[in-house]
Design a protein around this nucleic acid. Structure first.
Length: 708
RNA sequence: GGACGGUUAGCUCAGUUGGUAGAGCAUUCCCUUCACACGGGAGAGGUCACAGGUUCGAGUCCUGUACCGUCCACCA
């Protein structure tokens, strides 16, 4: 027996070397996997099993959420590899456009710099250097967590081939009439100086004053008096008897900065029961008003600029920030007797930037939109036919609801860190392509929403359309990711993948919940409750960390991560280590044997173990990893160690030669197969022990899963 | 305003198709016995949120209520 077993298991001292052995074996690459053992002898692996890794944002360290996906996806991949599949886990990294730009802007801020006024190319290069540095850190961290992914196939969302695929999709969308550039009301963040998609906004309930203002013959209610300079109409409901005589007429009255002339329009949108049943229409700064303006061909007058300040059209209020202007305008209106009354307790929702929580300013800007309803339609049908299975299954309903009510997607971002939108303009003409079509064309400066590229990740990474990987590994089997990004990412992958390739990109979606602190609160730097998975891995071993992240973690629900839990599985590592020591010690003293006939008692024990193995296998096949892990833990501790080892002591000491041989055979069989069953959960310690198993043939990594 | 998830031992959570409740941590007592003190043994601790219903039998299925949480939603 190796002297290692005389000391407690030292995770830190073995993990790095073990990972190196795996990586050098080449077996992370499915092309290099050895043949599998079948009843008919050796056979080449033919059936692929593919997981595309959710590419972590290359802008910081891996957090607990990443550790969860590594634990779960690596479990699936290792399991399927042992089951004889051609297992591919394709790693990647995301440039994470807006997210990274925000991170980098904070860094600039700390250095007393700002991105405004910087040369875009220089800024882009700086962020690229920053991103590539983080990317390599992140890759090291994935290795530390034991990810058995194929590094030779790693992709980055800014790789030239990926960008080419993304451009191809954009071009196809354009040719199919599914992408358009249009002036629409968009969500504008005055801090980040970019538009955001609907998903990137958060709404917050607020209580604000509702001002009832006098508009000529009308009194109308608004929470935003400061936008009145951009009014281009007032609207009433066409069936409202109170205002029939005014419809189509023009009203004229003295406002704060001169005479105001507004047309009275009738629109079903106006709710006669709300306020006075009259609405002022400010198309430039309210999405509903914009829609009405389109229906009635109203003028769009912008009065708030990109920084959230009133512009030159606002007379003496020009230069004021929105909030400041609101107070000033309200005060002046009151003084001039133009306010009828104020409802101080008006409850309503405002949209905020999900990053900085500033209130977003609706602005009308030309942006690129993708028409989503036609992309969603085939996906809705496929989900209804259960061609995509969700774990947990209630996400099916959530997904369908979102897809059925989908809105067009604004894919334009006014930031430098992203894939440039390949478009050129000349007068009213638009050209799609990366090269200028000739003199006088102006290049688009916007970049794509990062999700537009990551939404194409499964087929882009596999080399669509001609790559052999695409032919072999697409569609993939499982998409495992955080429930939080089901709309951002999973829905977009389903739609763009189906649109571009004609096939769904994956057939199973497994969504894990967010990882919280022990009190159930979300981890955040400001709360100071962030737990680094890498520190826990250093302290207790990656295996313990992974076990702690798997057990008790059901899909879709939040999981609390805390040190005690991980510590418990460190003790389990130790237990397994000592079980091994006991068996090895006895193999030495009694004489090593693995193929003696089993007596009745030992046959019963073996049957009991086989039942466990079958149970665990079924649980993994049915995505109940948390149960499989707990069963293994329970069996190894309470059956193998507490019962079998204890009853073995007298047998191995005083039993007959046959009894000893039978028992030792049993112990070796159980140990070996236990290591296999446990490998996907605790890859490092099992591989380390496997090294010391006599007559082993290969790395445990590629051993065959115990036959059920 | 819709929809979803949760409510099980002090804490964090399991409980697959309905068959008199489980794990880890914490806690009480005992034990340095030859795999392991990074351990072992024994114990305490729960009317499974509440109210009905289905059933021979419900934590598990149905209806409703309460509380917590999340997502979606353009009423100025």
């Amino acid at each position: 027996m190796h002297e290692k077993f005389l000391k407690p298991y030292d995770a830190k001292a073995t993990e790095e070397a073990t990972y190196k052995r795996w990586e050098e074996s080449g077996f992370f690459n499915p092309d290099n996997l050895p043949p599998i053992d079948t009843a008919q002898g050796k056979a080449e692996r033919s059936e692929p099993f593919t997981i595309i890794m959710p590419p972590p944002n290359a802008n910081g360290s891996l957090h607990a959420g990443h550790a969860v996906f590594v634990a779960i996806e690596d479990l699936m991949i290792r399991y399927q590899r042992m089951r004889g599949k051609k297992a591919l886990w394709l790693p990647g990294a995301d440039h994470a456009g807006f997210e990274t730009q925000v991170v980098y802007e904070k860094k600039l801020e700390k250095e007393g710099r700002t991105r405004m006024g910087m040369d875009p190319d220089a800024l882009r290069q700086e962020i690229m250097d920053f991103t590539l540095t983080n990317k390599s850190f992140m890759e090291g961290q994935l290795r530390q967590l034991g990810a058995s992914c194929d590094w030779s196939r790693e992709r980055f969302t800014l790789d030239p081939e990926i960008i080419e695929t993304v451009y191809g999709t954009f071009k196809k969308l354009h040719e199919d009439g599914l992408v358009y550039r249009g002036a629409r009301s968009i969500n504008w963040c005055t801090k980040h100086q970019t538009s955001l998609s609907e998903l990137e906004t958060e709404s917050e309930e607020r209580i604000d004053p509702l001002y009832y203002m006098k508009y000529g013959p009308f009194i109308l209610a608004t929470v935003r008096p400061e936008t009145k300079f951009g009014d281009t109409a007032v609207a009433v409901n066409p069936n409202d008897p109170r205002y029939q005589e005014w419809i189509g007429k023009e009203i004229e009255f003295e406002g704060l900065i001169g005479t105001v002339k507004l047309k009275v329009i009738a629109d079903e949108y106006v709710d006669p029961a709300f306020g006075t049943g009259v609405v002022k229409i400010t198309p430039a700064h309210d999405p509903n008003d914009f829609e009405m303006a389109k229906r009635h061909n109203l003028e769009i007058v912008e009065v708030i600029d990109r920084y959230g300040k009133l512009n030159e059209k606002c007379g003496k209020y020009a230069g004021m920030k929105v909030e400041e202007a609101r107070k000033a305008v309200a005060a002046d209106l009151l003084e001039r007797g133009l306010i009828d009354h104020v409802d101080e307790e008006y409850k309503h929702a405002v949209k905020k930037c999900y990053k900085c929580e500033r209130v977003l300013e609706p602005r009308v800007l030309p942006q690129w939109f993708v028409k989503m309803a036609p992309l969603a339609a085939p996906v809705i049908e496929a989900i209804e036919r259960d061609e995509v299975i969700f774990y947990p299954d209630h996400y099916k309903k959530i997904m369908l609801h979102w897809l059925r009510n989908i809105e067009d997607w604004n894919v334009s971002r006014q930031i430098v860190w992203g894939i440039p939108i390949p478009a050129w303009y000349k007068d009213k003409e638009v050209h799609i392509g990366t090269e200028s079509p000739g003199d006088g064309w102006i290049k688009e400066t916007d970049t794509f929403d990062t999700w537009f590229s990551s939404g194409q990740w499964p087929f882009a990474t596999l080399g669509y359309p001609d790559g052999s990987d695409f032919k072999q590994f697409y569609p993939t089997q499982v998409m495992e990711t955080a429930g939080e990004i089901i709309f951002f990412w999973v829905a977009r992958m389903l739609m763009l993948g189906t649109y571009r390739t004609g096939r769904l990109p994956f057939s199973t979606v497994y969504l894990h919940g967010i990882v919280t602190a022990k009190d159930g609160k979300k981890m955040s730097k400001s709360k100071g409750n962030v737990i680094s998975p890498l520190e826990l891995s250093e302290k207790y071993g990656t295996d313990a960390l992974r076990m702690g992240l798997i057990i008790g973690n059901t899909p879709g629900t939040t999981t609390a991560l805390y040190e005690d839990k991980i510590k418990a599985y460190k003790l389990f590592s130790n237990k397994l280590w000592n079980i091994t020591r006991f068996i090895f010690e006895n193999a030495e003293t009694v004489g090593h044997t693995e193929d003696a006939p089993l007596n009745a008692a030992d046959a019963t024990r073996l049957a009991e173990f086989k039942a466990l193995a079958a149970d665990v296998t079924k649980d993994i096949d049915e995505y109940r990893f948390y149960m499989a892990g707990e069963k293994l833990y329970g069996y190894l501790w309470h059956t193998l160690a507490d019962a079998i080892l204890e009853e073995s002591k007298p047998i191995l000491k005083e039993g007959s030669a046959e009894a000893k041989a039978s028992r030792l055979t049993l112990l070796m069989l159980i140990l070996k197969d236990s290591l296999k069953l446990l490998h996907p959960f605790m890859p490092f310690i099992t591989e380390e022990i496997w090294t010391h198993i006599p007559a082993r043939s290969n790395l445990l990594l590629v051993e065959a899963w115990p036959q059920p």
